[in-house]
Design a protein around this nucleic acid. Sequence first.
DNA 1: TCAATAGTGAAGTAATTACTTCAGTATTGC
DNA 2: GCAATACTGAAGTAATTACTTCACTATTGA
Lengths: 111, 111
Amino acid sequence: MLHDPSQLDLMFQALADPARRQMVDRLSRGPASVSQLAEPLAMSLSAVVQHLNVLEASGLVRTEKLGRVRTCQIEPKALRAAENWINERRLAWERRLDRLGDFLAETKDES
Amino acid sequence: MLHDPSQLDLMFQALADPARRQMVDRLSRGPASVSQLAEPLAMSLSAVVQHLNVLEASGLVRTEKLGRVRTCQIEPKALRAAENWINERRLAWERRLDRLGDFLAETKDES
DNA sequence: TCAATAGTGAAGTAATTACTTCAGTATTGC
DNA sequence: GCAATACTGAAGTAATTACTTCACTATTGA
């Protein structure tokens, strides 16, 4: 583990924690402040800020501070990047299965 | 960090490592043995087996041993579950933006 | 101006992770 | 039976993670 971590590493790592997924889930329904994100979570505000920093470093969340309130938003492009990585592998696998099915059907015809 | 980890935790955690993503990528092109998975990776076979166990525990990969060869396959249902979690949040966010757009358009009409 | 609010930052701890090496077992093919 | 192959398992190490608490700064509003 000496890798300097890619964006995909950071995004999947960020999504691997239930508290962070809960934060993303909350943000999927609209922007929120740090305290609003913290409210349903059974942990200190400091812990929430640390989770938020992980989310921000991953690119999944963008934040902006106005006055004393830090407002957080989802970054859908990042979400889409993670989604696409999985989707491409799954589709490759399914296309392969389709080809295999075609091949088996053909060889059956020829027998 | 006292959670007993959900399947989503395990799947995203599994995908957060580049070696494991490389293994999933390889498997998306068809089944492979442990040594075939290990071949392009610059680490010991033992390390690869440990990564493979993480992938298997997450449900993303299924393995079956015949004789002395352990053959590994992608489990597309699990891949789809991870994909869907992200997709649902992203869609929620985009639907919200659409409604916001509609609202702004309406209030503009009324002014 | 002062108190409440909103968040930041550092330090410490326990658990987990990503490897390594080395020694082992099970299977295959000659 | 024996050597090569294919993998397994345990133990150790360094780095990272998920928190905690406590002390702190910046902003707001009466």
